[in-house]
Amino acid sequence: MTRRELEWTVLAALAERSPCYVVDLAAAIDEHPVAVETVCASLRDRGELRSIGYRRYDVTAAGRRQLADGHDDDPV
């Protein structure tokens, strides 16, 4: 899975079951927790996720807009 695909997978998974811990999210999407944590940090830095505690994330309104705008659009 490319990084961009992983970003979309993380956003979509969190939109369905948010907030969520990185380890639970990684298990749900069958990816390594370190890769998921890295992507979550990047999405947080762009404002699409927010951290709500130790390695726990929630989708922001900006993240939901990215999902609504479509998979092919680049964020920011």
Rank of each mutant, 00 (worst) to 15 (best):
29 I>H: 12
59 V>P: 00
36 V>L: 01
62 A>W: 00
30 D>H: 05
48 E>C: 10
44 R>G: 14
49 L>G: 15
42 S>N: 10
45 D>A: 15
54 Y>T: 14
61 A>F: 03
35 A>L: 02
56 R>D: 06
47 G>D: 07
55 R>S: 06
40 C>H: 05
34 V>R: 04
32 H>F: 01
64 R>M: 06
40 C>A: 14
55 R>E: 09
58 D>V: 13
42 S>K: 15
64 R>Y: 09
29 I>F: 01
47 G>L: 00
50 R>I: 05
57 Y>C: 13
34 V>T: 07
46 R>A: 12
64 R>F: 02
37 E>C: 04
47 G>K: 03
31 E>R: 15
61 A>K: 09
63 G>E: 06
39 V>R: 03
58 D>F: 07
28 A>N: 12
41 A>Y: 10
30 D>K: 12
43 L>E: 09
47 G>W: 00
37 E>K: 03
41 A>D: 11
54 Y>L: 12
61 A>G: 10
55 R>I: 06
64 R>L: 04
63 G>L: 00
53 G>D: 09
42 S>R: 15
61 A>H: 07
56 R>F: 01
35 A>M: 02
32 H>V: 08
40 C>P: 01
50 R>C: 14
56 R>Q: 10
45 D>K: 15
34 V>Y: 05
30 D>Q: 12
55 R>K: 15
30 D>I: 04
